[in-house]
Amino acid sequence: MSDDSQRLPVTTDQDVVRVRQLVRTVAVAVKLSLVDQTKIVTAASELARNTLVYGGGGEVEVSRVQNDRRAGIRIVFADQGPGIIDLELALTDGYTTGGGLGLGLSGARRLVDEFEIDTEPGKGTTITIVKWCR
């Protein structure tokens, strides 16, 4: 499904900046509209920061994807942190355990076309997002 994919570690603030830049580059390459580029980069920034802050660091994989109709970009955020105990709560606007605004997860979900969370307490969290060209 994906032709080429690129991986980046997420262990520092600087890595979060690198994730934003890579996502921007790929979003431009798959010809997402300017607004959609902005949305996917913003969502990636939120999720990469969560990987760093709550997941204790991890890895991001950015791929170009293609189905029979459209091109798109898929990003996978993976960590081996504590996992998300109450997923429904974590996805609620305004819920935070870290003194944030609690908008990262719920906001990122609104900004993308596909959003999938795989999390297990004590094992870690993997979040996959996809944005398709219109």
Binding site: V35, L103, R110, L111
Partner: peptide, 14 residues
């Protein structure tokens, strides 16, 4: 603020 940023910020909920 760029228009695309404004649109995204509002959808993010900020």
């Amino acid at each position: 603020m760029r228009p695309a940023v404004a649109i995204t910020l509002v959808e993010l909920g900020l």
